[in-house]
Write a protein that binds this DNA or RNA. Structure first.
Length: 600
RNA sequence: GCUCCAGUAGCUCAGCCGGAUAGAGCAAUUGCCUUCUAAGCAAUCGGUCGCAGGUUCGAGUCCUGCCUGGGGCGCCA
């Protein structure tokens, strides 16, 4: 047993958050210099705006000038008298109106890198107080195929889930699929009509989902009798009629399998659990009853509503959130409220993240308001809607397929793969290389899927972006292929030099001499700071930006510093830097849900 | 009408609690492969941060108004 999970030295390495460490020192110095009432003062430590100012700068002195009745420069220099950072930094300096510039010591950088070298987490410590987190995965209506609209929620939600999980949180991935409601009446009615055998054999060809839906829709639009049958099916479904439930299950299963296939193709976490609308169905009457008991429920025009604070309709009157329709049916607000309640009371969740389109901002504000007023959402639980911009076509409008409908997700993915593959094949011809079909297919898939996901993630999630295969697959710029190439370059060194990175001496020193080595070292040590930032503001594009910056810095290093031809001990030192870069890229991309390649 | 979001280089976008001279990529122009994959590197060019006020030591960032674009606004999700 001993050998299976050795107590690795990583557990002994202190958290590599240089930023946090320095901030702590600055705060201590503030109190030492100006007294305990300064304990709450923020030294405003941020990365330096310009390399000539060092690595970090503390801007706090300016803000404290009024409070302390001293000039910012005087505050800064007094603070410096009490600041002990000799183990981390060169002697700090006061600059400009009162900035404190901090430059990390070479020996400190070298030691930190050395510590990270043997750490699979690359210096990223798990959070001290893990939370129970739910990430809401997109809710494709089970009755329809997934389309462009599902791309961002899937990709961004999956990345956030991976990042939070890596940081040590207990993440529950829930797909809130639309597996209940009126569209099912139509599908069940059509199933009965067109595939009566299916109810007996339980068989239906998977590929038929789209056509199945279209055919059902066509019947529904054309035939009043069929509409009546569909409505009847809904009633039977809600009444729990066994035969109808069975038909419903067949349709759900059909859709789930199709969606799973797309999830797999996209490389989404396999841990996604389906917890659709039908799951919350039994709780809906309780939600209404509880709202009523709390005195929040008002009946208006036959519908049961909660009137919202701060929302008005076109006439300027308070806007209701309808939780039970006048016909007695429930709507998505009811389901979402039931989900909030369940997540708090049963899942005991502390943070719920909804990566959903920005157009639903009002909806979330409204249900969160009701959730708070009902006492389900408290200060202990954070329900957060992370609004997403739309994916637009080249014309700046919502991306459509040629036929004018929302583009099918699977088509986008396959097109990206096909283009990535074609790019590779062109290159193979140009370079007179031959590769196996397996190699070509794999590179095509990894690059294609990686490119499409990275393009999505690298954009600030709040804003819409224009979908362009040419840009996402471009070999230069902030794209997945650029990052993959930096990774491949390192693996190329390993192959060429017959170097086993894992066997690189634990006692070989890291030596930073060239400017590009310093830049790379500093970039490598910022990984944990970036992940903390993403944890806080849920913007994966920050991680993308970091990885792009790291890759650029690496390419500069690669260009300026020969590695295999260098003399020892520089050779090993540079090999370690290269390896750390590759591992950071691999880990970083994996947290974004993107795979790497050893060759491409 | 109310409300939310956006407006930064020719194009696509970053810009963290307000900090020093606003940053990338693409495009354009120009150098660098007998040397670890040139899918790279270096350099040049490019800005009234939508407009007008305000807050203060300091504003792309905060406040007010306006302009432009997009979304949402009672039984769809």
């Amino acid at each position: 047993m001993y050998g299976c999970h050795p107590v690795s030295p990583k557990n002994l390495i202190p958290m590599n958050s240089t930023l946090a460490l320095l901030k702590d020192r600055l705060q201590t110095a503030l109190v030492a210099a100006f007294g305990p009432e300064l304990a709450d003062a923020d030294p405003v430590l941020v990365p330096a705006s310009n390399p000539k100012f060092g690595d970090y700068q503390a801007n706090g002195a300016m803000g404290l000038a009024k409070r302390l009745g001293l000039s910012p420069r005087a505050i800064a220099s007094q603070l410096l008298n009490h600041l002990d950072v000799a183990d981390l930094c060169d002697p700090p300096e006061v600059a400009g109106p009162g900035f404190i510039n901090l430059r990390l010591k070479t020996a400190y950088l070298e030691a930190q890198l050395k510590a990270i070298q043997s750490d699979p987490r690359l210096g990223v410590a798990p959070v001290p107080n893990p939370k129970r987190v739910i990430v809401d995965y997109p809710s494709p209506n089970i009755a329809k195929e997934m389309h462009v609209g599902h791309l961002r929620p899937c990709v961004i939600g999956d990345a956030l889930a991976r990042i939070l999980e890596f940081l040590g949180h207990n993440v529950l991935r829930l797909s809130h699929i639309g597996d209940w409601g009126t569209p099912f009446g139509m599908l069940i009615a059509y199933l009965r009509e067109a595939y009566p055998d299916a109810l007996v054999s339980g068989k239906l060809d998977l590929g038929d989902l789209a056509t199945f839906y279209r055919a059902a829709k066509k019947r529904f639009d054309e035939d009043a009798t069929f509409q009546e049958a569909a409505r009847l099916a809904v009633v039977q479904l809600q009444a729990g009629d066994p035969e109808t439930i069975q038909a419903w299950k067949i349709v759900c299963d059909l859709s789930n399998r199709t969606n799973r296939k797309i999830f797999d193709l996209m490389g989404l976490s396999p841990q996604i659990q389906e917890r659709g609308e039908s799951f919350y169905n039994p709780f809906l009457p309780d939600v209404i009853a509880e709202l009523d008991r709390l005195g929040l429920l008002v009946e208006d025009q036959g519908a049961k509503c909660v009137f919202l604070e701060g929302f008005t309709n076109k006439e300027g009157k308070p806007l209701p959130l309808i939780v039970q329709k006048s016909d007695g049916g429930y709507n998505y607000a009811t389901t979402d409220l039931a989900a909030i309640r369940y997540r708090v009371t049963e899942d005991r969740v502390q943070r719920v993240i909804y990566p959903v389109g920005a157009e639903q901002t009002n909806h979330f504000t409204q249900i969160f308001q009701v959730g708070k007023r009902a006492g389900w959402i408290t200060d202990e639980t954070e329900f957060v809607h992370t609004p997403l911009g739309n994916i637009l076509g080249e014309d700046g409008k919502k991306l459509k397929s040629r036929s004018g409908e929302a583009a099918r997700l699977v088509d986008l993915l396959e097109e990206a793969i096909a283009r990535a593959r074609a790019d590779l094949e062109t290159r193979l011809t140009d370079e007179n290389r031959t590769e196996t079909e397996d190699f070509i297919a794999n590179v095509g898939q990894v690059v294609g899927i990686g490119a499409i996901k990275y393009a999505d993630l690298s954009q600030n999630r709040t804003s819409s972006y224009i979908f362009s295969y040419d840009k996402m697959l471009a070999l230069q710029g902030n794209t997945a292929p650029y990052m993959l190439y930096a990774y491949v370059r390192v693996q190329g060194i390993s192959r060429k030099g017959g170097v086993d990175f894992e066997a690189l001496g634990a006692d070989s020193p890291i030596l930073l001499q060239d400017e590009s080595e310093f830049a790379l070292a500093k970039s490598l040590l910022q990984f944990d700071e970036v992940l903390s930032a993403v944890e806080a503001d849920l913007l994966p594009n920050r991680l993308c930006e970091y990885l792009f910056d790291l890759s650029k810095t690496f390419n500069q290093f690669y260009d300026r510093c020969p590695i295999l031809q260098a003399d020892e001990p520089q050779r090993t030192s540079r090999l370690i830097l290269a390896d750390l870069t590759a591992r950071t890229i691999r880990l970083g991309l994996s947290l974004l849900g993107i795979q790497v390649l050893e060759r491409m």
